[in-house]
Nucleic acid binder design. Sequence first.
DNA 1: AAAAAAC
Length: 451
Amino acid sequence: MAISFKDLGISKELESLLKKNGITEPTPIQEKSIPEILKGRDVVAQAQTGTGKTLAFLLPIMDRIDANKDFIQGLIITPTRELAIQITAEAKKLAAGKEINILAAYGGQDVAQQLRKLKRGIHLVVATPGRLLDHMERQNIELGRLKSLVLDEADEMISMGFIKDLEAIIVKTPKARQTMLFSATIPSEVRKLATRFMRDPLQLEIEGKNVTLDEIEQVVIETTDRKKFDTLCQMLDEHRPYLAIIFCRTKIRAIKLNYDLAVKGYNCDELHGDLSQSKRERVMKSFKSAKIQILVATDIAARGIDVEGVTHVINYDVPEDAESYIHRIGRTGRIGNLGTAVTLVTPKDADTLAVIERKIKSDFKLKNIPKPKVKGENRAEKRDGRKSSKKAGKDQGKRADYNPNYRAERRARRSGDNQSSEAPSKHRPRKSKNDSPKKNPKDYRHTVKKR
DNA sequence: AAAAAAC
């Protein structure tokens, strides 16, 4: 008999709310952490991407909030605005039918609007560090009676760029608070450093060696700087992702790549820190609803972002380090779904990639891609709107050495995963997603912008 | 050296 959320100490109300959303069984990290968090214990929790860390801290926090008391009891700090928005949305779902007030405090947004909400008595704040400090300095936010503090993406929060802000926030909270750290990557130095903020934390680490998930197929394609764009287009035409995130090293490169893809007719848009806040939120919304299928992003989207239907993550530029790689590819293959991560590598990237590879001890499947085909051929076919299977067959033949059996293999992997009694997946695929009518997962083809 | 994060 499987363990239920109620067995872990979660209220019946929350449990039935989860059930309505198709979530019935806790994941391993939820099973281990929730009972301890409910007791008020400090926790450092490392668990792979997409295994339910957010709910692991949100559920006990929501249950521990006393709606009759009019002060901030929970605080969640995240490294990006997008993540703060996402977690706020999750928390609001869990607050349904209760009088719990939640505030998202992040930059680029009207301060007055956030202030108005504050006047109403906030119980839970989800914030990015800068704006939170701003509110604190203006004496808008008072953390003197805080019960629980979460550092989401803890290693990123504790990294150089954030540590000072973080300390400034933490000194304004009670010593007796509960402190929780969550991330898929917690380097041992960070783990050590973090315990400064904590009292006898329960340390949860990833069991075994796999920091990345088996559900994510990892592929490397060799190319050169000159051929990179054509290689990418060829790869997109072959795989036809339903939703894909393409990561670039810099904002400029993301802008340029998005432009080039749009010119070729791909259904894409860009996400990075140089955009206005309203544009950022607009882009995320379009991507979540599959209005755009390709998101060209900087590492702003590397952590925590949970969009259902992301079949592919593409590293157009090799990530800086293993942590970035792990978080980027973790945008796919979430809650038991399959995903594909493709990394384009040029000769000068070889060393960086070797370091990453060694660090995560994962076997990349190296797949060479032949010379790009004649420009425009494949896209022209798609603009016709024709999808003749004959033509597809012909195309596959031409690319014989570039995994022509991609789809068949994918199917095989999927059914294999489900039937294998040897090592059943720890992560249950979600039941039917009748609450999300937006997409048809069978249709993995690009839609091409009319232009 | 890049990215993120306040006005």
